[in-house]
Design a protein around this nucleic acid. Structure first.
Length: 854
RNA sequence: GGGCGAUUGGCGCAGCUGGUAGCGCGCUUCGUUCACACCGAAGAGGUCAUGGGUUCAAGUCCCGUAUCGCCCA
């Protein structure tokens, strides 16, 4: 036992010990379906940086896991890294100063131009074009390094993860699982390929899914354009004015639309009008989504200006005249309806231009032709962005892969809702977010991405005599993982690649979520280790932040439903997020982010864990880096635990069983503690770690401030040997219980203290059990009340608490007499007179200095 | 515009199935080194956002309003 115990260095000391002892290893030999507690952990984005919100949420899942371990459960607690996907590509581009050019050949001797660059604004022009394979190798190299750093932070934080169970979403096993699941989706008709209007990020040149959208308020302007009705028999025609924020899409106009009830346009429905500038005849149609009060109440439908255009196009069966290419520029070939000399000339001026400059040109042309009325009218409206992009999304027509998600399938949607109700959400209202998301889906899940670092979509295509792609060719499951871009399609020769009559490999990869939606399968050895999978799946717990309910939680439920027809987990614990002192979400751009590593270093892991633990699931936590109050309180608690335990363990004690604990106060203390154990146990069973902590903590301070002081003298041997034995045995029993109640929260301090008097780790010791017999008698609170009176008298007299008291009268219920000796000892009262009364009071206190206080 | 959540002493939070408010920090005063100065003791401080309703009784249940936050349009 150290002379002066301290928190410093405990993380390293015990981190090493746990690693050497294998304290947190999955004990497969003894695992059964009944005694297992399996945790599905979110793989953090390896290329990102860990922030305080991660610490918060990962601590939450560790708390309940540690509790379950002590309850005797066999713990399956793996950790993964999400390293595939766009964030990694971006980081690699900046770090090494490179970018992919898929046409370049692989260079085995390649050395990147930069190492450790962090130039966030690095332009494509400054980046060295390299082959896809070289790029992927750099991705691999950097993520491995990043993951090492992440693991260090998690180990320091004290996550009780079995590090032999870790996985990477770009790893072979993850790729195999993702491709296998995809192939099965394909075989069952749940995955399909379709030509469709697709949300497209022009910066990254990739399709984007609904779950990755973000609305942003952007300035725009209404441009009032004049369409002209097709001349009647008498040659008369009138102008129809529409307002649009996207005049550059005029060549892609396919119709005008107004609300069916709008009297102003009734007479026009079914007639034709001609577009300004391009002279294309388009119909006037009616649809309920047209807003009467917006602009002039009649709008132009283009392919495609926004998602409403897509709906109109689909529901009204309109032609497709897409003019924006995958690079965000106006395509060279005009839609075939643009035929007049004037029209083709106008279009020629737009071709190749960005949306921004095309808009400018169209406006100039319209102003010149007199078909634009007045000046543009500035407005602000919300525009869809890719969450990681900084240019508005365009909608272009492309061929993409989708997985059915219930958006167009009522039966599946209802099944997914039912799955959500089968999962026990904590807090319960987080289920609503899931249901809202499922109910609000507008299309199937787009999973193909036109990127490089990810799991390849495992198909090839037959090429017909003209070289057009035909039926997909799929690999057998035992050949996975495959890369169709470099491996030959089964049944073909590599020389047939790209040749008419031969085959073509799919070059698209899957969205990251298409892999991470399978974390239960990846970590659990699905189809790789069926015995293991059968043990761990469905998992006991999914723990995650509320921000990824629509992505990770939803997609995991979906994949599990499609593949296994069951929910992936029994419980879902959802953590809130971190807000700064002004109640604003913490974010990098605000510069109010503190790195977890620095925080752990400064305050100690137990202190930081305490902070996270004191917030319930689902509740946002305030955090002020300048004044981290909760962390300081946690640190204080951990230090107090060290000291209190040291004190208690310093008393020699023979092994005294319950029979030796004879003093009524001691028995009552343990009865009160018994109740605390019951509270904490129930709270943990309900995933309410904050309540468990509060119960233990509250009792612990009473234990230290009152009970410990009351029995100190007796423990030193001031009374009878029986009294002493009872006190020391009770102290030791109580601290043993308290330490275990605290173990999930402050694993380092409790392990340190435990090691002084116990063999084995506290974290694999048994969670305290509630004994049925003990019921508190109320003695302890009575004694505490009397103690406060005595202390108050001394405080009021400005005297030390150690001041001797010549005499005092203690009044109270008869029961109080049972502990009168302890009271007398702690108060240092020479002579006590006891008077039976309803209420507790201490009177006629005569202090040794002859100061009398009422 | 729709949904969800929050609103309790200066600050951060508890208050379960309704019975006249608790904790921690901070603050004030005092004490102290034989477990702990990253200490101890005592104390001050709240008409529980607001307007109605149910009830013998409402932070606690119901309806409305306001403010804040998040999600989705």
């Amino acid at each position: 036992m150290p002379e002066k115990p301290a928190l410093e260095g405990l993380e390293t000391k015990w981190g090493q010990s746990w690693e050497e002892q294998g304290t947190y290893l999955f004990d497969r030999q003894n695992a059964t379906r009944e005694n297992i507690f399996s945790v599905d952990t979110p793989p953090p984005t390896a290329s990102g940086s860990l922030h305080i919100g991660h610490v918060f949420s990962y601590t939450h899942m560790d708390l309940v896991t540690r509790y379950q371990r002590m309850r005797g459960k066999t713990i399956f607690y793996p950790m993964g890294w999400d390293d595939n996907g766009l964030p990694t590509e971006r980081r690699v581009q900046n770090y090494y100063g490179v970018r992919v050019d898929p046409t370049l050949p692989y260079d085995p001797a390649f050395v990147p131009p930069l190492e450790g660059g962090d130039n966030a604004s690095s332009k494509a022009a400054d980046q060295l074009p390299i082959s896809r394979r070289n790029f992927i190798e750099l991705c691999e190299r950097l993520t491995v390094e990043d993951e090492k750093q992440f693991e260090d932070v998690w180990r320091t934080l004290g996550l009780s993860v079995d590090w032999t169970q870790s996985y990477r979403t770009i790893g072979d096993e993850a790729q195999t699982a993702a491709q296998r699941a995809f192939l099965r989706n394909l075989a069952r008709g749940e995955a399909y390929q379709a030509d469709a209007p697709t949300l497209w990020d022009i910066t990254f040149r990739t399709a984007v899914a609904q779950a990755e959208l973000e609305d942003k308020e952007m300035p725009a302007a209404y441009h009032r354009l004049a369409f002209r009705t097709v001349p009647a028999d008498d040659g008369s025609s009138t102008d129809i004015h529409i307002e649009t924020t996207r005049p550059e899409l005029l060549p892609a106009c396919v119709a005008l639309v107004a609300h069916p009830d709008d009297e102003r346009y009734q007479h026009l429905f079914g007639t034709m009008v001609t577009t300004p500038l391009f002279g294309v005849e388009v119909p006037v149609v009616a649809h309920h989504l047209a807003q009467k009060e917006k602009g002039s109440g009649i709008a132009m439908i283009c392919t495609f200006g926004d998602v409403t255009d897509v709906i109109w196009w689909r529901e009204l069966d309109l032609p497709n005249r897409t003019i924006i290419g995958s690079d965000g520029r106006i395509v060279a070939d005009a839609p075939d309806v643009i035929v007049t000399e004037q029209a083709t000339a106008a279009y020629a001026q737009l071709a190749g231009k960005t949306v921004f400059s095309a808009k400018k040109t169209v406006v100039e042309l319209l102003q010149a032709s007199g078909e634009m009325i007045g000046d543009p009218k500035p407005i602000s409206h919300s525009v869809k962005f890719f969450e990681k992009g900084d240019k508005p999304l365009e909608i272009i027509s492309t061929r993409q892969w989708y997985i059915r998600n219930g958006a167009r399938d009522v039966a599946l949607r209802e099944k997914l809702i039912a799955d959500g109700r089968e999962i026990n959400f904590t807090p319960d209202h987080m289920r609503t977010r899931y249901e809202n998301w499922v109910g609000g889906l507008t299309g199937d899940w787009l999973i193909s991405r036109q990127r490089f670092f990810g799991v390849p979509i495992p198909v090839w295509y037959e090429l017909d005599a003209e070289g057009n792609k035909g039926t997909p060719i799929v690999p057998s499951e035992d050949s996975l993982p495959v890369d169709p871009a470099s491996e030959t399609a089964p049944g073909y020769d590599e020389s047939q690649r790209g040749v008419p009559g031969g085959f073509a490999g799919e070059v698209d990869i899957m969205d990251t979520w298409a892999t991470s939606s399978l974390t239960p399968q990846i970590a659990g050895g699905w189809e790789r280790d069926p015995e293991l999978f059968d043990l761990v799946f469905p998992y006991s717990l999914r723990s995650q932040g509320q921000d990824i309910i629509r992505t990770w939680l939803f997609s995991t439920v979906l994949r599990s439903e499609l593949e296994h027809g069951t929910v992936p987990w029994k419980n879902a614990g959802i953590s809130g997020f971190i807000v700064d002192p002004d109640r604003k979400k913490m974010s990098k751009s605000k510069g109010n982010v503190v790195t977890p590593a620095a925080m752990l270093e400064t305050h100690g892991s137990d202190a930081v864990r305490y902070w996270a633990a004191s917030s319930r699931l689902g509740t946002d936590a305030a955090f002020d880096p300048q004044n981290p109050k909760q962390i300081k309180i946690g640190r204080r608690l951990a230090i107090k635990v060290l000291n209190a335990a040291k004190f208690v363990y310093s008393f020699p004690t023979a092994e005294v069983d319950a029979a030796g604990r004879t003093a009524p106060l001691d028995i009552d203390l343990l009865a009160e503690l018994n109740r605390v154990v019951a509270t904490a146990t129930k709270a943990f069973d309900e995933f309410d770690h904050a309540k468990a902590l509060e119960a233990a903590e509250q009792f612990f301070w009473t234990f230290c401030d009152d009970y410990l002081e009351l029995v100190k003298e007796r423990a030193y041997g001031a009374g009878t040997p029986e009294g002493q034995a009872s006190a020391t045995a009770t102290l030791r029993h109580a601290i043993d219980v308290l330490l275990r109640l605290f173990a999930p929260f402050i694993p380092f301090a409790t392990e340190e203290v435990w090691s002084w008097t116990h063999d084995g780790s506290i974290h694999t010791s048994e969670w305290p059990v509630v004994s049925a017999a003990a019921e508190p008698t109320g003695l302890l609170p009575l004694v505490s009340e009397a103690l406060i009176s005595i202390r108050r008298a001394k405080t009021d007299a400005k005297a030390s608490q150690k001041t001797e008291v010549v005499s005092a009268t203690i009044s109270g219920p008869a029961q109080l007499q049972l502990a009168i000796d302890d009271l007398q000892a702690v108060g240092r009262i020479a002579t006590v007179e006891f008077v039976e009364a309803d209420a507790v009071s201490v009177t006629h206190i005569v202090l040794a200095e002859q100061v009398e206080v009422q």
